[in-house]
């Protein structure tokens, strides 16, 4: 399959904003990279992200980079309906669920579950959030397949085996609980689970952070393989510029909850426009 982007984005996000706290009318004006803070001095609310607008094409990997606390996880958690955004809209191009033109943040909870189960895959920064560590690896995947409407036990087991094989988890460990697995293996099980429903949009939050380099390399190769073999749009969050250089053709730079720069990854790395991006790039070299 070719990753040549089709004309319609798989996902469009418009002015996504998430504010924690009581909020006042000035929260947004009072925060952001120009102020160097994401906490509103007037009311103490945290503006985790504000006015986030972007789109991702099918087959494309979009990188999101930014320092710790810049709002990266908040964006994907809102998109995965793990939390409710304060403002904003998101549109998914996926067939058959009647929500193509609807702002997915305005669906009812049953529709949201359906969108998540049928069209989204998520790999959490922390495997504890994405997996039930005491349920077997196969059981974790089965859970997602059941949610996506699979009913035949034999088929569920076959699909689980296939996904684990694809993510290089030895089949004989399918019936073992991920609690006993290494960090790298836990991430692989998360990836297998995220792929179970053949998602249109795959959300990947720091999937290699904290893993040793050789384990990281194999997971990154796995993501490359997924890019080649599926048409999923991927959002890849990382604070490692090496990861986006390897995997994503376009990148968004986040600072204090705002997009400060967006562009082709090689341009972001070689000709960064925003002062903060320049700092980020230069601190690597």
């Amino acid at each position: 399959m070719t990753p040549t982007p089709a004309s319609a984005p798989a996902l469009r996000v418009n002015n996504l904003t998430k504010i924690y706290g009581s909020r006042c009318p000035d929260c947004i004006e009072n925060t952001g990279p120009d102020h160097g803070r994401n906490v509103c001095p007037a009311c103490g609310s945290v503006v985790a992200c504000a006015n986030i607008t972007f789109e991702v094409m099918p087959g494309e990997i979009l990188g999101i980079v930014g320092e710790s606390g810049s709002g990266k996880s908040t964006i994907v958690r809102c998109l995965h309906f793990d939390m409710e955004p304060t403002m904003g809209a998101a549109y998914l191009r996926c067939s058959g669920n009647g929500s193509d033109d609807a702002n997915i943040f305005q669906l009812n909870s049953q529709e949201m579950r359906a969108v998540r189960n049928q069209h989204l895959g998520m790999v959490y920064q922390n495997p504890q959030m994405g997996l039930r560590l005491d349920v077997t690896a196969g059981g974790n995947i089965a859970e997602k397949l059941l949610a996506a409407g699979w009913r035949n036990v034999g088929m569920i087991r076959d699909r689980g085996g296939l996904l684990l094989k694809r993510t290089e988890i030895p089949l004989e460990r399918m019936d073992e609980a991920p609690r006993n697995f290494s960090g790298g293996m836990q991430q692989r099980v998360q990836i297998a689970k995220a792929l179970a429903n053949d998602p249109d949009v795959l959300l990947l939050d720091e999937l290699t952070t904290g893993l040793d380099v050789s384990v990281q390399a194999r997971i990154l190769d796995l993501i490359k393989e997924i890019r080649r073999s599926t048409d999923a749009a991927m959002i890849l969050i990382t604070h490692d510029l090496g990861v986006i250089k390897l995997l994503s053709e376009r990148t968004i730079v986040l600072k204090d909850g705002r997009i400060v720069e967006t562009g082709l990854t090689d341009q972001i790395l070689e000709d960064p426009q925003h002062e903060y991006t320049q700092l980020l790039v230069n601190s690597v070299l």
Binding site: G263, L264, D266, Q267, E270, D271, Q273
Partner: peptide, 9 residues
């Protein structure tokens, strides 16, 4: 050359 390839803006 990099401007032509848009590695530079």
């Amino acid at each position: 050359l990099k401007c032509m390839y848009r590695t530079y803006l």
